[in-house]
Design a binder for these strands. Structure first.
Length: 747
DNA sequence: GAGGTGGCGACCGAG
DNA sequence: TCGCCACCTC
């Protein structure tokens, strides 16, 4: 068993400079700028502490100051603090802010990072205890799906009826709850693939083990299992982590929760920071209950509330308070603005998504004209498909923008291909990577050859790459397939030799060139090819700061964000989820329509709880704004290429009217009024009217699913779903649409 | 046996 | 509208 204390980061003499006395002497200054609650959050260091920190209440400041305080007063060395965040961005930011307080000593904080990166670190140290070998690889979602598809095919499961994606979701869910295959409740696995879900989960774990690979869920589950099974090791780590700090505690899932409790013990110095009103990750297993029952878990816990808001002006905050008050499941708190009254929240109505995009871009241009900075504005959307009309408009008028968290850089096909080459060079046994590029670019190695390789590899118990080597040597393949395969293997052998002393970025350039991969995209005439080549260049560029290929690949596995280009003055476009923790002077919130926000699927799948989570998301989105928030909705929106019409979101009704300004609608500019319902069921920005016309108890619908109907504009169709007075109809000519029952008659 | 084409279902959200 | 898979052709 590896001894965690033999590692350099905890007992390094350099970590124990005379700093503690020095810093102690200067302790007062950093406490100076804090309010009393923040100060308590910083200085209460004896036993469990829960900090309920509302949006914009100086949470990060309190957190980083707390860490600095712990170090400065000599309560722990940097290597004895476990500090976890959810996103890499949050981890980076925390590190930088601590650096500002304590300088380079922050480098000694080896256990500051995301849950996942800390999981990797732990597993690398104790790989053998987790049934892994050193140098294991981390699969991304794509690899995971591929693997599951193979396993399901082997069990003859109909992929149409039981999508691999769904199984992946179930497995992820089990892992989030800390369940290994043998622990899955029988009932849960029954509904999928004729009761084989549990069996498939087991087979999947087995395959991962053979591949010496883990998925994201394992990064939490395996450390948990290892610590549960090894009391000595647990004791070592408990002793090591004098202080534990958890950010965004409301987002922890069961596995994370169990891990933390295990490490902290009942009276440990664990400090959790969170806000039940900002819990927006229920769908990936987060348990708001964790924060709600903190006091039960840690009876000695002290609870501190931060409610003084230093971010938003009063109207914005009051609007957000009023909205979130509609939720029942919450601890309950009201944020108080420390800034002035400010402007009311603006609500705007639009004819369609294109017009909405135009209005937003007009506002953004105006900001630029008045000397404002675009980088201080953001457009936050519920779903990423909403970004398209916005991007199109921004490109059209040449407005600089950046997309955050869109299709993630490292998940783009061309980047994944390039990475697959590098992974095979680094670890030839990476079967999934090898399979990915064996015939990319096309080199005449087809399905049949690939199947032969797989069969041979399985029979011999060797990796795909080794199987290829053996089959080439044995001359058992048809010439047509053998020559290109031999050539590919020779290429890899050469590249691997180069990798020994060539910087990774340079190696990548060579590989992309010699493999013909860049050539493949250069020949491609589709409009996207150019962007793909740019991405490849960006990939090579981003490798420049890494000395080893292995180091780079590990970074990639965990940090799925591309490094943003230098901060030019651009407006930011991102999802509401991605915006958590950020703030902007001006925030645009388009698409507040029933069905989109709250999202229909959240309602269908989780009912009232789903609705409350959507409402928390609205709360998070609104509280990103410092000075100005503009909410908008469109009567018509293109989804999957077809037009859908929608009603304004119920969240708009729920905003307290005293803090909202209904912008004079300038909708339907230069447009003829539509012939029928498109307009008449759009109730416009008049909130009173909508409230009156749409009473809470909806009249029962007089139509039934499956019924054939007639619609003035769209013609004949069949009702596929009904939600109160809103029908989803599959029209014979016009495709699928959602319309109001009032505009439909039986056919 | 390799590579091209048409039909079909999908996108809610993240590490 | 797009990407994937099944089918089809050379």
């Amino acid at each position: 068993m590896a001894d965690p204390f033999e590692l350099d980061d905890a007992h390094h003499p350099a970590d124990v400079p005379p700093l503690s006395q020095q810093a102690q002497a200067a302790a007062a200054p950093y406490l100076g700028g804090l309010n009393p609650e923040q100060r308590e959050a910083v200085s209460h260091t004896g036993g469990p502490l829960l900090v309920l920190a509302g949006a914009g209440t100086g949470k990060t400041r309190a957190l980083t100051t707390r860490l600095a305080h712990i170090l400065a007063t000599g309560q722990a060395w940097p290597g004895q603090i476990l500090a976890v965040t959810f996103t890499n961005k949050a981890a980076r930011e925390m590190k930088e802010r601590i650096r500002a307080l304590i300088g380079d000593m922050v480098e000694g904080m080896a256990w500051l990072g995301t849950f996942h990166s800390i999981g990797v670190k732990f597993l690398q140290r104790h790989a053998e205890l987790a049934g892994l070998k050193s140098g294991f690889s981390i699969l991304d979602t794509d690899d995971q799906l591929r693997l599951l598809k193979q396993l399901m095919a082997a069990e003859n499961i109909d992929e149409k009826r039981f999508p691999a994606r769904q199984l992946a979701g179930m497995i992820d869910d089990w892992k989030n709850r800390g369940l290994t295959p043998d622990r899955v409740p029988a009932g849960e696995a029954a509904g999928f693939a004729h009761g084989k879900a549990g069996l498939l989960y087991g087979a999947y774990q087995q395959r991962l083990k053979t591949l010496n690979a883990v998925d994201f869920g394992d990064l939490l589950l395996l450390p948990l299992k290892v610590l549960q099974a090894n009391a000595d090791l647990l004791a070592d780590y408990r002793q090591r982590f004098r202080h534990i700090l958890v950010d965004e505690y409301q987002d922890t899932n069961v596995a994370q929760y169990l891990l933390l409790r295990l490490l902290a013990g009942e009276n440990g110095n664990i400090c959790c920071v969170g806000d039940d009103d900002q819990s927006i990750y229920g769908w990936r297993g987060a348990q708001v209950e964790n924060i709600l029952r903190f006091k039960t878990d840690f009876p000695a816990a002290r609870i501190v509330r931060l409610v003084r808001n230093y971010r938003s002006t009063a109207h914005i905050l009051s609007a957000a308070n009023g909205l979130i008050a509609h939720n029942k499941a919450r601890l309950g708190k009201e944020l108080v603005s420390e800034l002035g009254e400010g402007e009311k929240v603006v609500v705007r109505a639009h004819w369609d998504d294109a017009e909405e995009a135009r209005a937003i871009s007009d506002d953004l241009e105006a900001i630029g004209r008045h000397g404002g900075r675009l980088s201080r504005a953001a457009v936050l959307v519920r779903a990423s498909f909403q970004m398209r009309p916005l991007e199109e408009r921004f490109i059209e008028i040449g407005l600089p923008y950046q997309v955050i968290g869109g299709p993630r850089f490292y998940e783009r096909a061309e980047v994944r291909d390039a990475l697959a080459y590098l992974k095979v060079i680094h670890a030839p046994a990476h079967d999934l990577a090898f399979a990915r590029i064996i015939n990319v670019p096309k080199r005449g190695i087809g399905k049949t050859t690939e199947q032969k390789l797989h069969a041979f590899a399985r029979a011999e118990g060797v990796a795909l790459y080794r199987a290829a080597e053996l089959l080439v040597q044995r001359e058992e393949l048809a010439k047509r397939a053998r020559a290109p395969l031999a050539a590919l293997l020779a290429d890899f052998a050469r590249w691997r030799a180069l990798a020994a002393d060539m910087p990774p970025a340079e190696l990548a350039g060579v590989v992309l060139d010699e493999s013909g991969y860049v050539e493949m995209w250069k020949k491609d005439t589709s409009p996207k090819a150019e962007g793909r080549l740019d991405n490849l260049k960006e990939l090579v560029r981003s490798m420049q700061e890494y000395d080893t290929l292995g180091g780079f690949l590990e970074h990639v596995a965990l940090v799925m964000e591309a490094d943003q280009a230098a901060a030019a003055d651009k407006v930011t476009l991102m999802t509401m989820h991605a915006a958590k923790g950020l703030e902007f002077d001006t925030v645009f919130l388009p698409g507040w329509e029933e069905g989109l926000f709250p999202h229909q699927r959240a309602l269908d799948e989780n009912g009232e709880a789903g609705l409350e989570e959507e409402r928390r998301l609205a709360y998070v989105a609104l509280t990103r704004a410092k000075r100005r928030a503009v909410i908008s909705f469109a009567a018509n929106r293109q989804v999957h290429g077809l037009w859908q019409n929608a009603l304004p979101s119920r969240f708009i009704d729920e905003l307290p009217k005293a803090h909202v300004e209904i912008a004079t609608p300038a909708p339907f500019m230069g447009r003829p009024m539509p012939a029928d319902d498109d307009m008449s069921h759009w109730r416009g920005p008049d909130l009173e009217l909508k409230a009156a016309a749409d009473p809470p108890g909806r009249a029962a619908c007089r139509f039934a699913v499956g019924q054939r109907i007639f619609h003035q504009k769209f013609g004949y169709g069949i009702i596929t779903a009904a939600d109160g007075d809103k029908l989803t109809i599959s029209f014979e000519k016009a495709g699928r649409k959602r319309v109001m029952a009032a505009f439909v008659e039986a056919a």
